[in-house]
């Protein structure tokens, strides 16, 4: 909040100082303007690649993406032109959905522990720090972890293994974002509920969670969007399939894995499929991101 007002006093102060501004030494004025140019340049440097990526994905992917692309199987030979991404789309929805089903309850409960029970106790602080650290664990490491602990024991690569890896990646993100949201719920609500004789769990489930639900949902959707784009763990633990596999067991594939595989093939058909898959993935990810933003801006609890 202090930022939003920061520019106003400047403008107000510079009005009477305007005469003095022109009397400032040239070097100081130049340096000041130069710094402004640099800041805008920095923004431009970040935005140009974004624009280029979006442009290429839409231009190249748009030419490939049609009903056929979304519903046909992946060709067995990367050389072949045409074909579709249906198995990968199914795989992405299946793994991300299963991962969300595992990570959301665990993450929300963990956040409730941190904010409602643990607070500043040593254990809660440890969990909080470790959740932060876990956010930074590279996705490939999570893939190796699930491979070692699940795939090598069950002796089968599967969508479920992929979902486990994605759930591990989502868990800390959900915990931390949910905790932030729970912290915004005013204490008066909890006290009022307690005064009406509600038990602590009842208070949490029927008062605190509903009050924070929009923020929690938007955090969860951002986590899902991030998980849907994860590639490395899926390549390690999911295997490959060319036909739609709706089952959690048996080898499967996903959009990011297909983009990766096709991008490394030198054939034009594979290249086109990679762009098409990239556009499909971007649409899915952006859909989740935009909906999350809408929810959080529409229904956010006003910070006090």
């Amino acid at each position: 909040m202090s930022v939003s007002t920061a520019s106003r006093p400047t403008a107000a102060a510079s009005a009477p100082l305007d005469l003095r501004r022109s009397s400032l030494p040239l070097r100081r004025r130049l340096v000041d303007n130069f710094s402004k140019v640099l800041m805008m340049l920095a923004l431009l440097i970040a935005v140009i690649p974004l624009g280029l990526v979006v442009y290429y994905v839409i231009r190249k992917g748009g030419g490939v993406l049609d009903g056929d692309f979304l519903t046909s199987d992946i060709p067995r030979s990367a050389r072949r032109l045409g074909g579709g991404m249906a198995p990968a789309i199914v795989g992405t929805l299946l793994t991300t959905g299963t991962a969300a089903a595992m990570a959301i309850p665990l993450g929300v409960l963990g956040a409730i522990y941190l904010n409602e029970y643990g607070k500043q106790r040593p254990l809660a602080r440890l969990v909080r720090t470790m959740a932060d650290v876990m956010t930074g664990v590279p996705s490939i490491v999570m893939g190796l972890f699930i491979l070692v602990i699940w795939v090598l024991n069950v002796k089968e690569k599967s969508a479920f293994a992929g979902a486990l890896a994605l759930a591990c990646l989502m868990l800390p993100v959900i915990i931390r974002s949910t905790e932030e949201m729970l912290r915004l719920v005013p204490d008066e609500l909890r006290q009022a509920s307690a005064a009406l004789g509600a038990r602590r769990w009842k208070t949490t489930v029927s008062v605190v969670l509903p009050a924070a639900i929009s923020g929690i949902v938007s955090g969860v959707m951002l986590a899902i969007a991030r998980a849907a784009g994860e590639t490395a763990p899926l390549i390690v633990v999911m295997g490959i399939t060319f036909e739609v596999n709706w089952s959690l067991s048996g080898q499967n594939t996903a959009l990011p894995a297909q983009i990766f595989n096709n991008a490394t093939e030198p054939y034009p058909g594979a290249e086109l499929r990679a762009w098409g898959a990239a556009l499909t993935l971007m649409v899915i990810v952006l859909l989740f991101t935009v909906v999350a933003r809408l929810i959080s801006s529409r229904f956010a609890i006003k910070e006090r």
């Binding site: 309850p105 665990l106 993450g107 929300v108 409960l109 963990g110 409730i112 522990y113 941190l114 409602e116 029970y117 643990g118 254990l123 809660a124 440890l126 969990v127 470790m130 959740a131 650290v133 876990m134 664990v137 490491v141 999570m142 190796l144 972890f145 070692v148 602990i149 591990c168 868990l171 800390p172 915990i175 038990r199 602590r200 769990w201 009842k202 949490t204 489930v205």
Partner: peptide
């Protein structure tokens, strides 16, 4: 509901501990 209270607390604590368990398992198993 007094049992529910304890149960809920236990659920939440174990969910929080899951983070530590997973990190420990990553290191140990790998």
């Amino acid at each position: 509901g007094r049992h529910a209270d304890r149960l809920f607390w236990a659920l939440c604590v174990s969910a929080g501990l899951a983070v530590l368990v997973i990190l420990g398992l990553i290191l140990a198993s790998m």
